[in-house]
C-alpha cells in the first residue's frame, strides 16, 4: 500500500537506483509503509505496523536479509544530498540534530560519522544510515481522548507519555488541530495555539509554512529549541495553549513553568513507557511534583500506534 503523496514527497528524494524498487516494494506491503531504512552495504528494509520486510533486487519483498538489495555508498550520499535539496549547509542545524524534514513533514533520521568539536556534534559526515519515517496525518486521532482533557470549556495542561513510535506526534498534531479549530460538541471554542516544532515533525514546515493541518489559529515556530521557543511564543504571540514535542531538559521545564505562570495551558510529549519512567527524569519529575500538568496520557503500540492506555488526572493525584 502506497502512502498518500509517496511518489512526490518521498521517491523524488531517493537515489534514482532505488526509487523503482521502493515503489514496487511499498505497493506489495500488506499495511501502509511506516519507515524506509536505508543503510550502506546493508539490506534495504521497510517497516510497517506489525512487521518489517527487506527488498529483493527485483523489487519484491523478502524476509531473508541475505537476498535483499544493499544500497551502496553512492546511493546513500545521493539520497542524503537529494533530501537536503543539494544544500546540506542550509539544514546545518537539522543535520547536527541528526535529521532532515522532507516536504510533507516526513522526517529522515541520519546516522553516520559525527564530527565533534569541544564535545558537541558539529556535523555528520559520511551518512551511512537513513531512516525515512513517513508522517501520517490521522485527523480525528484525538477524538476519543479530547473529552478527557477538557473541563468546563477549558483545556487542561497535558503530558503525553509514550515509547517511540506509539503515535505520540500524530496525536499531538491532531490535538493541536482540534484545539485550534475548536470543538463545539465539547463546548470548546477555538484557541490560539503556539506550537514549537523543533524538529519540523509536527507541522512539517517547509520554509516556515506548515505542510500539515495544524488548525486555523495555530502559529508554528519552526526549528527552534523548545525552551527558547516557548518563551518567545508566550511573550510575543499571546497564545492560550502552547504545544511542544519531546520535552525533558531542565530549561524545557523552566519554560513550561513560565507558561503556566502566564496562565497558558501546556500540551507536551515525553518519552517513556509509564509515569514511573517520567518520574525518573529530574526535570520532568520536578514539573510533575509542582503539578504543572493536570492530565497525563499513556500511549502504547499494543493495538497499533496511538493506543491510549490510560488518562491520569494528575491534579487529583497531587492533591491526594
Amino acid at each position: 500500500m502506497l502512502p498518500e503523496g509517496f511518489e512526490r514527497e518521498i521517491l523524488t528524494y531517493v537515489s534514482p537506483r532505488l526509487t523503482g524498487l521502493l515503489r514496487r516494494a511499498a505497493e506489495a506491503l500488506p499495511a501502509p509503509l511506516e519507515e524506509i531504512r536505508i543503510r550502506q552495504d546493508r539490506p534495504l528494509q521497510l517497516v510497517y505496523p506489525g512487521g518489517d520486510a527487506f527488498v529483493a533486487p527485483d523489487g519484491r519483498l523478502t524476509a531473508d536479509p541475505g537476498r535483499a538489495v544493499r544500497p551502496d555508498h553512492d546511493d546513500l550520499q545521493r539520497t542524503f544530498q537529494l533530501m537536503a535539496r543539494g544544500s546540506v549547509y542550509a539544514w546545518e542545524e537539522e543535520v547536527r540534530g541528526g535529521f532532515l524534514t522532507l516536504e510533507g513533514g516526513h522526517r529522515v533520521g541520519l546516522c553516520g560519522r559525527a564530527v565533534t568539536e569541544a564535545g558537541r556534534i558539529r556535523t555528520l559526515t559520511q551518512v551511512a544510515s537513513l531512516n525515512i519515517r513517513i508522517a501520517r496525518e490521522v485527523p480525528g486521532a484525538a477524538d476519543g481522548l479530547l473529552p478527557h482533557l477538557v473541563r468546563g470549556g477549558r483545556f487542561l495542561s497535558t503530558l503525553l507519555i509514550s515509547p517511540p513510535q506509539a503515535g505520540k506526534t500524530t496525536l499531538l498534531r491532531d490535538l493541536v488541530r482540534q484545539l485550534s479549530a475548536g470543538v463545539p460538541r465539547l463546548g470548546l471554542r477555538g484557541l490560539k495555539v503556539g506550537l514549537v516544532d523543533e524538529r519540523s515533525e509536527v507541522a512539517g514546515c517547509l520554509r516556515g509554512v506548515p505542510q500539515r493541518d495544524v488548525g486555523p489559529r495555530t502559529d508554528v515556530l519552526d526549528g527552534c529549541p523548545k525552551a527558547e521557543g516557548l518563551m518567545l511564543l508566550i511573550r510575543a504571540l499571546s497564545p492560550e495553549v502552547v504545544a511542544a514535542d519531546e520535552i525533558g531538559r531542565p530549561e524545557d521545564a523552566t519554560a513550561v513553568m513560565e507558561a503556566l505562570h502566564a496562565g497558558v495551558a501546556v500540551l507536551a510529549t515525553a518519552h517513556g513507557s509509564g509515569l514511573a519512567d517520567v518520574r525518573r527524569r529530574p526535570a520532568l519529575a520536578e514539573l510533575l511534583r509542582v503539578g504543572a500538568f493536570e492530565r497525563a496520557v499513556l500511549l502504547s503500540r499494543r493495538r497499533g500506534p496511538g493506543t491510549v492506555e490510560a488518562v491520569l488526572d494528575l491534579a487529583r493525584e497531587v492533591v491526594a
Binding site: F80, A84, V88, Y89
Partner: peptide
C-alpha cells in the same frame, strides 16, 4: 562537495 557538507566546509 558542492552542497554536500555543512556551511563551514562549503
Amino acid at each position: 562537495v558542492l552542497g554536500a557538507s555543512d556551511r563551514h566546509d562549503q
